[in-house]
């Protein structure tokens, strides 16, 4: 029993380390204050989160909350789309046939080894501008009734920005799916050959082996790296601000410019991203624990 209690015992080394850390940050804080001589001023922030609308006599979201909502929608749909694409291409990576294997390999290597900014520009100007009209998404707002419009607005944000939002979702999803592909592939390959052989020997077809034996085990194993990739995706969603999608980073830049309170705005927004990403991490931790306990 003493072995377990001693694992968490507080020793003098811990005190020294803790004091060292406190001292270090105290010193940095002190230096920042004396060198920067910056007057922190947070009072303007609430006004950029919500604004009072005289016409409707109600509180409406202002720039920062609008940006946050856009980021949330962007991240949510991209995660779903990227997971779908990533699982399909991940399975293709392990295919016996050359074409699917080569195709998914090409996709992964192309995207992984090109700077994201270049990918986003190329995708936005050359590819997305073809796909969106092809799917009829650019005229969707005119074809929807008022009730349909409000549903779409809830799911994807302002109807007038719809084709823009879709571009952002596709861009981000295709970009992140390349990484998810590799995660899924490693998960599939981590399932032992014996599992597949046992599945074969009871007569399951190749698809059934994948569906009922390999994938469930692979999914269980890839949840931690997948959660990491989703968190990266949430943060990466800021790069679509480059194609003028008005998400959190894009609008933060505007607020920072117009208020000139650069530090406050960015520190605050960093906190918002942290809360967002950390909640995502917590959700996946719970999922992981649930799947884990079901096996015992």
């Amino acid at each position: 029993m003493s072995r377990f209690t001693s694992r968490y015992r507080w020793s003098w080394v811990d005190s020294v380390v803790l004091l060292g850390i406190i001292g270090f940050f105290g010193f940095i804080g002190y230096r920042v204050n004396t060198v920067l001589v910056y007057q922190w001023e947070w009072g303007f922030l609430p006004g950029y989160l919500f604004r009072w609308d005289e016409e409707t006599q109600s509180l409406l979201p202002n720039l920062l909350v609008k940006g946050l909502l856009t980021t949330l929608r962007l991240a949510f749909w991209s995660i779903i789309l990227a997971t779908l694409i990533g699982f399909v291409t991940g399975m293709m990576r392990t295919s016996r046939r050359l074409f699917p294997r080569a195709f998914s390999r090409l996709y992964v290597e192309l995207i992984r080894n090109v700077p994201p900014i270049v990918f986003i520009f190329v995708f936005y100007f050359f590819i997305s501008s073809q796909i969106i009209p092809l799917l009829g998404l650019d005229t969707l707002d005119q074809r929807l009734g008022p009730s349909g419009q409000s549903v779409v607005e809830f799911l994807f944000g302002p109807v007038s920005l719809l084709s823009n939002t879709f571009s952002g979702i596709f861009c981000l999803a295709l970009f992140e799916a390349a990484y998810i592909t590799e995660i899924v592939r490693s998960g599939i390959q981590s399932v032992s050959v014996g599992q597949r052989e046992a599945a074969m020997s009871i007569g399951l077809s190749r698809w059934q082996q994948m569906r009922y034996v390999v994938l469930p085990q692979a999914v269980q194993r890839v949840i931690p790296p997948l959660a990491g990739q989703f968190i990266i995706l949430i943060k990466d969603s800021s790069i679509v601000s480059l194609i003028s999608i008005q998400e959190l980073t894009f609008l933060t830049l505007e607020v920072a410019n117009s208020t000139q309170r650069v530090f406050e705005v960015w520190v605050f927004v960093a906190g918002v991203y942290f809360v967002l990403c950390y909640s995502c991490a917590l959700i996946f931790r719970r999922l992981e624990m649930r799947l884990d306990s079901s096996r015992i």
Partner: peptide
């Protein structure tokens, strides 16, 4: 394969399924 059963050295049971589900997978699918 569906006419020939095989038992392996390393058992190769499906760890994500219960004993019963291990046995019903083949007959059902």
């Amino acid at each position: 394969r569906s006419e020939v059963g095989m038992v392996f050295q390393q058992f190769n049971l499906f760890p994500h399924l219960t004993v019963l589900e291990n046995c019903t997978l083949g007959p059902m699918k």
